[in-house]
Nucleic acid binder design. Sequence first.
DNA 1: AAGCGTGGTCAATGTTTCTTGACTTGCTGG
DNA 2: CCAGCAAGTCAAGAAACATTGACCACGCTT
Lengths: 150, 150
Amino acid sequence: MNSDEVFDAISHPMRVEILKELANGPKGFADLKRKLKISSSGLLDFHLKKMASIVTTNADGSYILNDRGFAAVQAVDVVARYGWQRRSYFINVGMYIVMNVYLFLTIQHWAVLIVFGIWTAWIVFYSYWTFIKRRVRLRNNGESKTRPER
Amino acid sequence: MNSDEVFDAISHPMRVEILKELANGPKGFADLKRKLKISSSGLLDFHLKKMASIVTTNADGSYILNDRGFAAVQAVDVVARYGWQRRSYFINVGMYIVMNVYLFLTIQHWAVLIVFGIWTAWIVFYSYWTFIKRRVRLRNNGESKTRPER
DNA sequence: AAGCGTGGTCAATGTTTCTTGACTTGCTGG
DNA sequence: CCAGCAAGTCAAGAAACATTGACCACGCTT
Protein backbone atom coordinates (compact mmCIF):
# COMPACT_ATOMS: atom_id res chain seq x y z
CA MET A 1 0.00 0.00 0.00
CA ASN A 2 1.47 3.33 -1.06
CA SER A 3 1.47 5.38 2.12
CA ASP A 4 2.30 8.72 0.55
CA GLU A 5 -1.20 9.07 -0.82
CA VAL A 6 -2.76 8.09 2.46
CA PHE A 7 -0.78 10.64 4.46
CA ASP A 8 -1.51 13.28 1.88
CA ALA A 9 -5.18 12.52 2.32
CA ILE A 10 -5.04 13.16 6.07
CA SER A 11 -2.49 15.97 6.27
CA HIS A 12 -5.05 18.69 6.88
CA PRO A 13 -7.08 19.10 10.08
CA MET A 14 -10.37 19.31 8.23
CA ARG A 15 -9.63 16.08 6.41
CA VAL A 16 -8.85 14.33 9.67
CA GLU A 17 -12.26 15.54 10.90
CA ILE A 18 -13.90 14.15 7.79
CA LEU A 19 -12.05 10.88 8.33
CA LYS A 20 -13.32 10.63 11.89
CA GLU A 21 -16.87 11.42 10.78
CA LEU A 22 -16.76 8.72 8.11
CA ALA A 23 -15.24 6.22 10.53
CA ASN A 24 -18.61 6.33 12.33
CA GLY A 25 -20.51 5.34 9.22
CA PRO A 26 -21.54 6.61 5.77
CA LYS A 27 -22.45 10.28 5.46
CA GLY A 28 -23.96 12.33 2.67
CA PHE A 29 -22.55 15.59 1.38
CA ALA A 30 -24.91 17.94 3.23
CA ASP A 31 -24.63 15.74 6.28
CA LEU A 32 -20.84 16.21 6.41
CA LYS A 33 -21.27 19.89 5.76
CA ARG A 34 -23.53 20.26 8.79
CA LYS A 35 -21.49 18.09 11.14
CA LEU A 36 -18.24 19.85 10.38
CA LYS A 37 -19.87 23.28 10.26
CA ILE A 38 -18.47 24.03 6.82
CA SER A 39 -20.29 26.89 5.15
CA SER A 40 -18.88 26.45 1.66
CA SER A 41 -19.75 23.53 -0.59
CA GLY A 42 -16.68 24.20 -2.66
CA LEU A 43 -14.45 23.73 0.34
CA LEU A 44 -15.93 20.37 1.25
CA ASP A 45 -15.78 19.32 -2.38
CA PHE A 46 -12.12 20.27 -2.52
CA HIS A 47 -11.22 18.24 0.55
CA LEU A 48 -13.30 15.24 -0.48
CA LYS A 49 -11.48 15.25 -3.79
CA LYS A 50 -8.13 15.31 -2.01
CA MET A 51 -9.29 12.27 -0.06
CA ALA A 52 -10.24 10.38 -3.22
CA SER A 53 -7.69 7.66 -2.51
CA ILE A 54 -9.28 6.71 0.81
CA VAL A 55 -12.94 7.67 0.36
CA THR A 56 -15.47 6.17 -2.03
CA THR A 57 -19.23 6.33 -2.38
CA ASN A 58 -21.66 3.51 -1.67
CA ALA A 59 -24.77 2.50 -3.57
CA ASP A 60 -26.92 5.41 -2.35
CA GLY A 61 -24.24 8.00 -2.98
CA SER A 62 -23.05 8.44 0.61
CA TYR A 63 -19.36 8.77 1.29
CA ILE A 64 -17.64 5.84 2.97
CA LEU A 65 -14.08 4.87 3.74
CA ASN A 66 -12.36 2.17 1.75
CA ASP A 67 -9.73 -0.18 3.19
CA ARG A 68 -7.02 2.43 3.01
CA GLY A 69 -9.39 4.82 4.77
CA PHE A 70 -9.71 2.45 7.69
CA ALA A 71 -5.94 2.05 7.68
CA ALA A 72 -5.76 5.84 7.98
CA VAL A 73 -8.16 5.75 10.94
CA GLN A 74 -5.78 3.33 12.60
CA ALA A 75 -2.78 5.47 11.80
CA VAL A 76 -4.43 8.40 13.55
CA ASP A 77 -5.21 6.09 16.42
CA VAL A 78 -1.66 4.80 16.68
CA VAL A 79 -0.28 8.30 16.88
CA ALA A 80 -2.82 9.30 19.51
CA ARG A 81 -2.21 6.14 21.52
CA TYR A 82 1.57 5.88 21.39
CA GLY A 83 2.94 5.25 24.85
CA TRP A 84 0.51 2.49 25.72
CA GLN A 85 2.48 -0.12 23.85
CA ARG A 86 5.18 -0.16 26.47
CA ARG A 87 2.58 -0.80 29.15
CA SER A 88 0.78 -3.53 27.21
CA TYR A 89 4.11 -5.22 26.60
CA PHE A 90 4.78 -5.47 30.32
CA ILE A 91 1.25 -6.73 30.99
CA ASN A 92 1.71 -9.41 28.37
CA VAL A 93 5.09 -10.57 29.62
CA GLY A 94 3.89 -10.49 33.23
CA MET A 95 0.98 -12.70 32.33
CA TYR A 96 3.32 -15.11 30.55
CA ILE A 97 5.56 -15.48 33.59
CA VAL A 98 2.80 -15.80 36.18
CA MET A 99 0.75 -18.26 34.19
CA ASN A 100 3.62 -20.55 33.25
CA VAL A 101 5.08 -20.68 36.72
CA TYR A 102 1.60 -21.39 38.03
CA LEU A 103 1.00 -24.16 35.51
CA PHE A 104 4.35 -25.80 36.22
CA LEU A 105 3.71 -25.82 39.93
CA THR A 106 0.12 -27.00 39.74
CA ILE A 107 0.05 -29.50 36.94
CA GLN A 108 2.66 -32.18 36.52
CA HIS A 109 1.98 -33.20 32.96
CA TRP A 110 4.12 -33.20 29.85
CA ALA A 111 1.43 -31.35 27.86
CA VAL A 112 2.18 -28.23 29.88
CA LEU A 113 5.50 -28.18 28.06
CA ILE A 114 3.62 -27.72 24.78
CA VAL A 115 1.76 -24.72 26.16
CA PHE A 116 4.97 -23.35 27.58
CA GLY A 117 6.84 -23.86 24.32
CA ILE A 118 4.25 -22.18 22.15
CA TRP A 119 3.70 -19.34 24.57
CA THR A 120 7.45 -18.76 24.77
CA ALA A 121 7.70 -18.66 21.00
CA TRP A 122 4.91 -16.09 20.96
CA ILE A 123 6.63 -13.92 23.58
CA VAL A 124 9.92 -14.02 21.69
CA PHE A 125 8.16 -12.99 18.49
CA TYR A 126 6.19 -10.31 20.30
CA SER A 127 9.37 -8.89 21.86
CA TYR A 128 11.05 -8.83 18.48
CA TRP A 129 8.02 -7.09 17.00
CA THR A 130 7.76 -4.58 19.79
CA PHE A 131 11.38 -3.55 20.14
CA ILE A 132 12.90 -4.26 16.75
CA LYS A 133 10.14 -3.66 14.26
CA ARG A 134 7.98 -1.14 16.09
CA ARG A 135 10.96 0.41 17.84
CA VAL A 136 9.18 0.85 21.12
CA ARG A 137 11.80 1.87 23.65
CA LEU A 138 11.89 0.92 27.32
CA ARG A 139 12.91 4.46 28.15
CA ASN A 140 13.93 7.55 26.21
CA ASN A 141 17.42 7.50 24.76
CA GLY A 142 19.88 10.39 24.64
CA GLU A 143 17.27 12.88 23.46
CA SER A 144 18.09 16.37 24.66
CA LYS A 145 15.68 19.05 23.55
CA THR A 146 14.03 20.46 20.46
CA ARG A 147 16.26 22.11 17.94
CA PRO A 148 17.02 25.64 19.14
CA GLU A 149 15.64 28.58 17.19
CA ARG A 150 18.37 30.83 15.96
CA MET B 1 -1.04 13.74 21.32
CA ASN B 2 -2.08 16.19 18.61
CA SER B 3 -1.99 14.13 15.45
CA ASP B 4 -2.40 17.00 12.97
CA GLU B 5 1.19 18.09 13.51
CA VAL B 6 2.48 14.56 13.15
CA PHE B 7 0.70 13.96 9.86
CA ASP B 8 1.83 17.33 8.60
CA ALA B 9 5.37 16.27 9.39
CA ILE B 10 5.11 13.12 7.23
CA SER B 11 2.90 14.33 4.39
CA HIS B 12 5.72 14.65 1.88
CA PRO B 13 7.65 11.72 0.39
CA MET B 14 11.02 13.24 1.24
CA ARG B 15 10.00 13.65 4.85
CA VAL B 16 8.91 10.02 5.02
CA GLU B 17 12.35 9.13 3.70
CA ILE B 18 13.97 11.25 6.38
CA LEU B 19 11.75 9.56 8.96
CA LYS B 20 12.84 6.13 7.80
CA GLU B 21 16.49 7.17 7.85
CA LEU B 22 16.21 8.49 11.37
CA ALA B 23 14.33 5.39 12.50
CA ASN B 24 17.60 3.53 11.93
CA GLY B 25 19.51 5.77 14.29
CA PRO B 26 20.83 9.34 14.68
CA LYS B 27 22.15 11.05 11.58
CA GLY B 28 23.98 14.33 11.04
CA PHE B 29 23.00 16.96 8.51
CA ALA B 30 25.52 16.06 5.80
CA ASP B 31 24.88 12.41 6.51
CA LEU B 32 21.17 12.78 5.70
CA LYS B 33 22.02 14.85 2.68
CA ARG B 34 24.18 12.07 1.27
CA LYS B 35 21.83 9.22 2.09
CA LEU B 36 18.81 10.90 0.53
CA LYS B 37 20.82 12.27 -2.40
CA ILE B 38 19.66 15.83 -1.75
CA SER B 39 21.86 18.35 -3.49
CA SER B 40 20.57 21.45 -1.73
CA SER B 41 21.20 22.22 1.94
CA GLY B 42 18.29 24.64 1.94
CA LEU B 43 15.90 21.91 0.89
CA LEU B 44 16.96 19.58 3.68
CA ASP B 45 16.81 22.45 6.12
CA PHE B 46 13.27 23.25 4.99
CA HIS B 47 12.05 19.70 5.49
CA LEU B 48 13.81 19.25 8.80
CA LYS B 49 12.12 22.41 10.02
CA LYS B 50 8.75 21.08 8.93
CA MET B 51 9.51 17.98 10.96
CA ALA B 52 10.37 19.97 14.07
CA SER B 53 7.53 18.42 16.05
CA ILE B 54 8.85 14.88 15.62
CA VAL B 55 12.62 15.39 15.27
CA THR B 56 15.05 16.73 17.84
CA THR B 57 18.83 16.79 18.18
CA ASN B 58 20.90 14.77 20.62
CA ALA B 59 23.96 15.79 22.60
CA ASP B 60 26.35 15.72 19.62
CA GLY B 61 24.00 17.60 17.35
CA SER B 62 22.73 14.64 15.32
CA TYR B 63 19.07 14.47 14.44
CA ILE B 64 16.97 11.88 16.21
CA LEU B 65 13.28 11.06 16.47
CA ASN B 66 11.37 11.90 19.60
CA ASP B 67 8.44 9.81 20.89
CA ARG B 68 6.05 11.33 18.39
CA GLY B 69 8.58 10.53 15.69
CA PHE B 70 8.52 6.85 16.60
CA ALA B 71 4.74 7.03 16.68
CA ALA B 72 4.94 8.36 13.13
CA VAL B 73 7.16 5.44 12.11
CA GLN B 74 4.46 3.14 13.40
CA ALA B 75 1.74 5.04 11.62
CA VAL B 76 3.59 4.55 8.34
CA ASP B 77 3.94 0.90 9.23
CA VAL B 78 0.27 0.47 10.05
CA VAL B 79 -0.78 1.90 6.72
CA ALA B 80 1.70 -0.26 4.85
CA ARG B 81 0.65 -3.37 6.75
CA TYR B 82 -3.13 -2.98 6.78
CA GLY B 83 -4.75 -6.17 5.55
CA TRP B 84 -2.62 -8.46 7.69
CA GLN B 85 -4.73 -7.79 10.73
CA ARG B 86 -7.56 -9.91 9.44
CA ARG B 87 -5.16 -12.78 8.86
CA SER B 88 -3.48 -12.48 12.24
CA TYR B 89 -6.91 -12.46 13.86
CA PHE B 90 -7.77 -15.79 12.31
CA ILE B 91 -4.39 -17.25 13.26
CA ASN B 92 -4.91 -16.14 16.84
CA VAL B 93 -8.42 -17.51 17.14
CA GLY B 94 -7.41 -20.74 15.44
CA MET B 95 -4.62 -21.21 17.93
CA TYR B 96 -7.04 -20.57 20.77
CA ILE B 97 -9.44 -23.25 19.60
CA VAL B 98 -6.83 -25.90 18.80
CA MET B 99 -4.87 -25.40 22.00
CA ASN B 100 -7.86 -25.45 24.32
CA VAL B 101 -9.47 -28.48 22.77
CA TYR B 102 -6.09 -30.19 22.95
CA LEU B 103 -5.61 -29.28 26.59
CA PHE B 104 -9.08 -30.45 27.55
CA LEU B 105 -8.59 -33.79 25.88
CA THR B 106 -5.07 -34.41 27.16
CA ILE B 107 -5.05 -33.07 30.67
CA GLN B 108 -7.83 -33.79 33.11
CA HIS B 109 -7.08 -31.13 35.68
CA TRP B 110 -9.10 -28.22 37.02
CA ALA B 111 -6.20 -25.78 36.48
CA VAL B 112 -6.81 -26.07 32.73
CA LEU B 113 -10.03 -24.18 33.40
CA ILE B 114 -8.00 -21.22 34.59
CA VAL B 115 -5.99 -21.17 31.39
CA PHE B 116 -9.15 -21.58 29.38
CA GLY B 117 -10.91 -18.77 31.26
CA ILE B 118 -8.12 -16.27 30.90
CA TRP B 119 -7.46 -17.15 27.30
CA THR B 120 -11.17 -16.78 26.51
CA ALA B 121 -11.25 -13.37 28.17
CA TRP B 122 -8.29 -12.37 26.03
CA ILE B 123 -9.95 -13.56 22.83
CA VAL B 124 -13.14 -11.66 23.65
CA PHE B 125 -11.18 -8.50 24.31
CA TYR B 126 -9.08 -9.02 21.19
CA SER B 127 -12.20 -9.48 19.07
CA TYR B 128 -13.70 -6.33 20.50
CA TRP B 129 -10.52 -4.44 19.79
CA THR B 130 -10.17 -5.79 16.28
CA PHE B 131 -13.69 -5.35 15.04
CA ILE B 132 -15.13 -2.56 17.16
CA LYS B 133 -12.22 -0.27 17.92
CA ARG B 134 -9.97 -0.90 14.94
CA ARG B 135 -12.90 -1.50 12.60
CA VAL B 136 -11.23 -4.35 10.81
CA ARG B 137 -13.88 -5.95 8.63
CA LEU B 138 -14.22 -9.63 7.79
CA ARG B 139 -15.04 -8.67 4.23
CA ASN B 140 -15.73 -5.46 2.38
CA ASN B 141 -19.12 -3.90 3.06
CA GLY B 142 -21.38 -2.22 0.48
CA GLU B 143 -18.49 -0.33 -1.08
CA SER B 144 -19.12 0.17 -4.77
CA LYS B 145 -16.38 2.02 -6.57
CA THR B 146 -14.36 5.21 -6.52
CA ARG B 147 -16.22 8.42 -7.05
CA PRO B 148 -16.76 8.77 -10.80
CA GLU B 149 -14.96 11.58 -12.62
CA ARG B 150 -17.37 13.90 -14.29
C1' DA C 1 47.02 30.24 5.34
C1' DA C 2 44.20 27.97 1.94
C1' DG C 3 41.14 24.52 1.07
C1' DC C 4 37.69 21.27 2.44
C1' DG C 5 33.86 19.28 5.06
C1' DT C 6 30.09 20.05 8.29
C1' DG C 7 26.10 22.33 9.49
C1' DG C 8 23.57 25.32 8.63
C1' DT C 9 20.61 30.41 7.14
C1' DC C 10 18.12 33.28 4.03
C1' DA C 11 15.78 35.49 0.05
C1' DA C 12 13.57 34.77 -4.18
C1' DT C 13 10.63 32.19 -7.07
C1' DG C 14 7.69 28.75 -8.94
C1' DT C 15 4.12 25.45 -7.68
C1' DT C 16 0.33 23.66 -4.93
C1' DT C 17 -3.01 23.96 -1.82
C1' DC C 18 -6.95 26.32 0.43
C1' DT C 19 -10.82 29.09 0.49
C1' DT C 20 -14.50 31.87 -1.29
C1' DG C 21 -18.45 32.63 -3.68
C1' DA C 22 -21.15 32.35 -7.67
C1' DC C 23 -23.37 29.01 -10.43
C1' DT C 24 -25.73 24.32 -11.99
C1' DT C 25 -28.67 20.32 -11.96
C1' DG C 26 -32.10 17.33 -10.22
C1' DC C 27 -35.56 16.16 -7.04
C1' DT C 28 -39.61 17.03 -3.84
C1' DG C 29 -43.43 19.16 -1.34
C1' DG C 30 -46.92 22.44 -1.34
C1' DC D 1 -44.99 25.10 -11.33
C1' DC D 2 -41.81 27.05 -8.54
C1' DA D 3 -39.32 27.45 -4.00
C1' DG D 4 -36.06 25.19 -1.64
C1' DC D 5 -32.79 21.79 -0.61
C1' DA D 6 -29.17 18.26 -1.79
C1' DA D 7 -25.19 17.62 -4.10
C1' DG D 8 -22.24 19.25 -6.29
C1' DT D 9 -18.78 22.23 -10.17
C1' DC D 10 -15.69 25.86 -11.28
C1' DA D 11 -12.81 30.15 -11.57
C1' DA D 12 -10.05 33.25 -9.15
C1' DG D 13 -7.18 34.91 -5.49
C1' DA D 14 -4.72 34.28 -1.08
C1' DA D 15 -1.81 31.55 1.55
C1' DA D 16 1.34 27.97 2.27
C1' DC D 17 4.76 24.84 0.50
C1' DA D 18 8.89 23.27 -2.14
C1' DT D 19 13.12 24.24 -4.35
C1' DT D 20 17.20 26.74 -5.78
C1' DG D 21 21.27 28.91 -5.10
C1' DA D 22 24.06 32.11 -2.77
C1' DC D 23 26.15 32.85 1.53
C1' DC D 24 28.27 32.12 6.37
C1' DA D 25 30.88 30.28 10.37
C1' DC D 26 33.56 26.88 12.38
C1' DG D 27 37.03 23.25 12.74
C1' DC D 28 40.55 20.38 10.69
C1' DT D 29 44.52 19.32 7.93
C1' DT D 30 48.16 19.70 4.68
